[in-house]
Design a protein around this nucleic acid. Structure first.
Length: 839
RNA sequence: GCGGACGUGGCGGAACGGUAGACGCUGGGGACUUAAAAUCCUCUUCCCGUAAGGGAGUGCGGGUUCAAAUCCCGCCGUCCGCACCA
C-alpha cells in the first residue's frame, strides 16, 4: 500500500473494526486502574457543530491516551434530549417532539461515529427515554422523602413568549435567556429543591477542587455569595398595625452608630401596608416596579425613596429615632428586604443621603486622631477603627463587629448570621417535553408522591401543540387520576422538571445503569468522580452547581459515597470564524464570499463585502462551518488534528482553510514516512535522543491538556525522522511516532500500525516509554553573554565545570571584541546553560 | 462598581528568572514537471548594512537582578463573568 492515505475508505474500515471488537466498552469489573473521561453531553439540536468536534476530540485524546497507559476507561456519550427546541419544532413543523428529537439523535450519533471517537456506545442514553427519566422521578421522590423538595407559592419569572417559568439564572438583563422577551412577574405554586441547604458545603468544597479552573471556582463562589453579619430588629413607632418591627441584615454591624435612615424594598410588607392607606406610597411603589433591570438602567438609576411616617427606634439608644423610607435600590430577594443606611461608609447609602439631605456621619476612620474629619465625595467602605461610636471607639472594625453581635445576642435584639445570594432551585416548568414531576394533587390529601411501583410516569404521546401553554394541562385522560392515598378524584402535576435536573445525574447513570434502579452504588463508585470533565464555560455556574448539589444530596441520603462529581474540569474555548457583511448589512456565510486581493467580494454578485471581527460560530452571524463536508473531504484525522493544533485548548480556535489544509498535509507526511524506507541496522544516536525527548514531552503535554504543545512536538519529530538517514533507530522512531499520534489521529495510526505489522489494534497497544538518561544531550550549546546580552554560543560537553566553561567563553572572538582588552569583573556560570561575563 | 483572564512577528501561538519568536499558517525565492497539482529545499520580528556585523525589540513607565516576556510597583488597553447583594 502506498500513495496517499485515503480517509474515505480507511476511516470507516477502522470504525467498523472498533465497533465489532467493542474496543471501547468499559468493564466496571476490570482490575485495571479506572479513569472516567466525560464531555458534556450534547443537546440533539440537529447536527454536530464545530464546538462539539473540538470538545469531543479533546476528551477522546485523553480517553485513548489513558487506555494506552493501561487504564480501564469509561468514555460514554448520550443526549440531553428534553428541552424547548423540540417543542418549537413541533409547533412549527407539526412533528412530535420525540420524533424530531430521535431523528436528530440518529443523525448526530452517525456524525460522531464518523469522527472515530472512542466512545462506549453500549452505555448511550437519552434523557427523554422513560428508562432514564423514570429513574430520575425515583430520585426526585427520594429527595422529596428526605425533605429536600418543597412546594411554595412564589413570584416567578414568567416568559410570555415561551409561556413558561424561568429560573433566576435563566433571566438575563430582565429578558428570557431563550426568547429574549421581557420577563413578567407571576405568582405560581412551584416545586423547589433545597440547594441552599448545601450552600456552605458547596462553597467550602470549591477550595478543594484544585483541578478546576480558577475562573469557574470564583464564578461559583460569587454565585453562592456568602456574607457574614448581623441580623437585627428595629422596634417601630407610628407603624401600620399589622407591622411590629423591621428586620435588617448588615455585614457591618460596627457602623451601627453611623446609621441615619432605614430603607425597605418596594415589595416589603411594611411598604405594602403603607400603600394601603397612603396613595402616594402606592404610586411610588408602582414607579419602582416599572423601572427596568438592565445593566445600563441600574447604573444610571437614581437612588429614590419615599419617606413614610414610620420611625424606627435605634436598638442601642431608645431616644434615637430613624426615618423609614421605601427605596428603589433595596431588594426584597436579598437578606430581609430592609437595610439600615450608613451614608458615611456605604456608597449607595451615601448617594441616598445626599438626595434626601440625611446626616452623613463618620464612624470609621484610619485612626482615632482623624475622627472629626468629614466624609468627602465618596463613602469610605474600608475597615479601620471605630470613632464617634460611644463604647466602640478605638476598636478595630473586626473587634467592633464582634462586640455589637455579642451585645445584640445578649440583649436579644439580633444575632450573628450568614446570608447567601444563592436561592433555592425552582424546578417546575410549564412544558410538555420534560420529565413529568411524579406527584398527584388530591383535594383531600394534598400533594401525594406517585407510588414507586407506578413509575415511570410516562409522557403521553397523543398531544397537540396548536395552542400555546402546556399540552399536558389539556390532556384530560392523562391529567385526571385517582389519588394513590385515598382513592378519590385527583389530578397529576402537569409541570415537568427543569432540564438541568436531567443533566444533574446523567454522569452517574453512565457509570452504572441497572434496569430496576437509578444506579448501583458500588458500581458507580468504581468510576466516580469523573477524572476529567470537559465542556464549555457557559455551564460554569448552572449545570456544574446543580450537578454538585445533586451529588451531595445523594450522599446525604446515603445513596452514593461521592461528594464531588467532577475531580478535574476543563473549559475549552470556542471555535470562531471571521464574519462577513454585504453592503446592506446582511450577514454572509463563508461560502458566499471569496478573496479578491486584500478584499472580499460576494461570489454571486461581485459586490464588495466587509469582513468583520472573528466571533463564535453562530447561525445568526452565519459564520458557521459545517463539520460534515469538511469531514468528507479531509477525513476525521485531519479534522481532529486541526482541532488540537495551534490554539491552546482553553482559548478560542479560529477556523481557517489553511489550518485544515495544514492538518491534512501532516496526515499525508506521516503516511509517507510509514510507506518509506524503514530498512537499516545502524543506530542513530541523535534521532534516538530526539525520540525519547518527544515521548516525554508529548506525554507531559497531554497530561496537562496542552494539546497544541503535543502537536508541535510531533511536528518536530516528524521533521527529524524525515531528515534522518535510514537506520534501525529511524524505523523504531516511525513505529513510536505512530503510537504517539494514535490518540489524536486514530485511523491513520491503525492503518499505519497494520502496515508495520504492529499486531492487534493500536488502540490497545501500550503507550511508548522513554529512557530518562536519553533526555539530555551529550553536547550542549552554551549561551555566552556579555553584560547579560547574548554575544555568542559555544558547543561544550555536558557537565563541563565552571572554570572550563568560563575559559571557553572567554576564548570567543566576539567576547574579546566586546571586552576590548578590559578584564571581566565577574563571571556567572549556569552549568550547561550559559556564561555571563560582567565587564 | 466587584471579580477573573489576557496583552509576544503579517496571523495562531512557544519560551523551569538564563540563546525571545519553537511549531503551524501566510508570504518571498528556488528545485522537480511540457505544464499544473503534489512534494522537496530555502528565507521570512523590525531598523542600518552588499556582506561581516551592529542596533532596537515581548502594551506603557519605573524597580529588583549578573540576567526580566517571566518577579515587584504604577499606568493603559482588550475580553469574560457578576452586578443597587446591604
Amino acid at each position: 500500500m502506498s500513495g496517499r492515505f485515503d480517509p474515505s475508505t480507511a476511516d470507516r474500515r477502522w470504525q467498523a473494526r472498533w465497533e465489532e471488537e467493542r474496543s471501547f466498552a468499559a468493564d466496571s469489573a476490570s482490575n485495571k486502574p479506572k479513569t472516567y473521561v466525560l464531555e458534556m453531553f450534547p443537546y440533539p439540536s440537529g447536527r454536530i457543530h464545530m464546538g462539539h468536534v473540538r470538545n469531543y476530540t479533546m476528551g477522546d485524546v485523553i480517553a485513548r491516551y489513558r487506555r494506552m497507559q493501561g487504564h480501564e476507561v469509561l468514555h460514554p456519550m448520550g443526549w440531553d434530549a428534553f428541552g424547548m427546541p423540540a417543542e418549537n419544532a413541533a409547533m412549527e413543523r407539526k412533528v412530535h417532539p420525540g420524533e424530531w428529537t430521535r431523528a436528530n439523535i440518529n443523525t448526530m450519533r452517525d456524525q460522531l461515529k464518523r469522527l472515530g471517537f472512542a466512545l462506549d456506545w453500549d452505555r448511550e442514553l437519552a434523557t427523554c427515554d422513560p428508562s432514564y427519566y423514570g429513574h430520575e422521578q425515583a430520585l426526585f421522590l427520594d429527595l422529596f422523602d428526605a425533605g429536600l423538595v418543597y412546594r411554595k407559592e412564589s413570584e416567578v419569572n414568567w416568559d410570555p413568549v415561551d409561556m413558561t417559568v424561568l429560573a433566576n439564572e435563566q433571566v438575563i438583563d430582565g429578558k428570557g435567556w431563550r426568547s429574549g422577551a421581557p420577563v413578567e412577574r407571576r405568582k405560581l405554586a412551584q416545586w423547589f429543591l433545597k440547594i441552599t441547604d448545601f450552600a456552605d458545603d458547596l462553597l467550602e468544597a470549591l477550595k478543594k477542587l484544585d483541578q478546576w479552573p480558577e475562573k469557574v471556582r470564583v464564578m461559583q463562589e460569587n454565585w453562592i455569595g456568602r456574607s457574614q453579619g448581623l441580623q437585627f430588629r428595629f422596634e417601630l413607632a407610628n407603624s401600620p398595625p399589622q407591622i411590629d418591627g423591621i428586620e435588617v441584615f448588615t455585614t457591618r454591624p460596627d457602623t451601627i452608630f453611623g446609621s441615619s435612615f432605614i430603607a425597605v424594598a418596594p415589595d416589603h410588607p411594611l411598604a405594602l401596608a403603607a400603600a394601603e392607606t397612603d396613595p402616594k406610597a402606592a404610586a411610588f411603589i408602582d414607579e419602582c416596579r416599572s423601572g427596568g433591570t438592565s445593566a445600563a438602567e441600574i447604573e444610571t438609576a437614581e437612588k429614590k425613596g419615599y419617606r413614610t411616617p414610620v420611625e424606627a427606634v435605634h436598638p442601642l439608644d431608645p431616644e434615637w429615632r430613624l426615618p423609614v423610607y421605601i427605596a428603589n435600590f433595596v431588594l426584597m430577594e436579598y437578606g430581609t428586604g430592609a437595610i439600615f443606611g450608613v451614608p458615611g461608609h456605604d456608597q449607595r447609602d451615601f448617594e441616598f443621603a445626599r438626595q434626601y439631605h440625611l446626616p452623613i456621619k463618620r464612624v470609621v476612620a484610619a485612626s482615632t486622631e482623624v475622627a472629626s474629619e468629614p466624609i468627602g465625595d465618596e463613602a469610605e467602605s474600608m475597615a479601620g477603627v471605630a470613632v464617634n461610636s460611644r463604647f466602640l471607639d478605638g476598636m478595630t472594625t473586626e473587634q467592633a463587629t464582634a462586640e455589637i453581635i455579642r451585645r445584640a445576642e445578649e440583649a436579644g435584639w439580633g444575632h450573628g448570621t450568614v446570608q447567601y445570594r444563592l436561592r433555592d432551585w425552582g424546578v417546575s416548568r410549564q412544558r410538555y417535553w420534560g420529565t413529568p414531576i411524579p406527584i398527584i394533587h388530591c383535594p383531600s390529601c394534598g400533594a401525594v408522591p406517585v407510588p414507586r411501583d407506578q413509575l415511570p410516569v410516562v409522557l403521553p404521546d397523543d398531544i397537540e401543540f396548536d395552542k400555546p401553554g402546556n399540552p399536558l394541562d389539556r390532556h384530560l385522560t392523562w391529567k385526571h387520576v385517582r389519588c394513590p392515598s385515598c382513592g378519590g378524584l385527583a389530578t397529576r402535576e402537569t409541570d415537568t422538571l427543569d432540564t438541568f435536573v436531567d443533566s444533574s445525574w446523567y454522569f452517574i447513570r453512565f457509570a452504572s445503569q441497572p434496569a430496576d434502579k437509578p444506579f448501583d452504588r458500588a458500581e458507580a463508585e468504581t468510576w466516580l468522580p469523573v477524572a476529567q470533565y470537559i465542556g464549555g464555560v457557559e455551564h460554569a455556574i448552572l449545570h456544574l452547581l446543580y450537578a454538585r448539589f445533586w451529588t451531595r444530596a445523594l450522599q446525604r441520603l446515603g445513596e452514593l459515597g461521592v461528594a464531588e462529581p467532577f475531580k478535574g474540569l476543563f473549559t475549552q474555548g470556542m471555535v470562531t470564524h471571521e464574519t462577513y457583511r454585504a453592503g446592506d448589512g446582511s450577514w454572509l456565510s463563508p461560502d458566499e464570499v471569496k478573496r479578491d486581493g486584500d478584499d472580499w467580494v460576494h461570489i454571486e454578485s461581485g459586490h464588495p463585502v466587509t469582513s468583520g471581527r472573528v466571533e463564535k460560530m453562530s447561525k445568526s452571524k452565519r459564520n458557521t462551518i459545517d463539520p460534515e463536508p469538511i469531514l468528507a473531504s479531509y477525513g476525521a484525522d485531519a479534522v481532529r488534528w486541526f482541532m488540537l493544533s495551534d490554539s491552546p485548548p482553553e482559548r478560542d480556535l479560529e477556523w481557517s482553510e489553511g489550518g485544515i489544509e495544514g492538518a491534512s498535509r501532516f496526515v499525508q507526511r506521516v503516511w509517507r514516512l510509514v510507506n518509506g524506507n524503514l530498512e537499516g541496522a545502524s543506530e542513530d544516536e541523535a534521532l534516538k535522543r530526539k525520540l525519547h525527548r518527544t515521548v516525554a514531552a508529548v506525554g507531559e503535554a497531554v497530561d496537562d491538556l496542552q494539546f497544541n504543545k503535543a502537536v508541535a512536538q510531533l511536528y518536530e519529530l516528524v521533521t527529524a525522522i524525515e531528515k534522518a538517514q535510514p537506520s534501525a533507530t529511524r524505523a523504531e522512531a516511525v513505529r513510536a511516532l505512530i503510537l504517539l499520534i494514535a490518540p489524536m489521529a486514530p485511523h491513520l495510526a491503525e492503518e499505519s500500525w497494520a502496515l508495520l505489522g504492529g499486531g492487534g489494534l493500536i488502540a490497545n497497544a501500550p503507550w511508548p516509554s522513554f529512557d530518562p538518561a536519553l533526555l539530555l544531550d551529550e553536547q550542549v550549546t552554551l549561551a555566552v553573554q556579555v553584560n547579560g546580552k547574548l554575544r555568542d554560543t559555544v558547543t561544550a560537553p555536558r557537565g563541563l565545570d565552571r572554570a572550563a566553561a568560563e575559559a571557553l567563553a572567554l576564548a570567543s572572538d566576539k567576547v574579546q571584541r566586546q571586552l576590548a582588552g578590559a578584564s571581566p569583573r565577574k563571571v556567572i556560570v549556569v552549568p550547561d546553560r550559559l556564561v555571563n561575563i560582567v565587564a
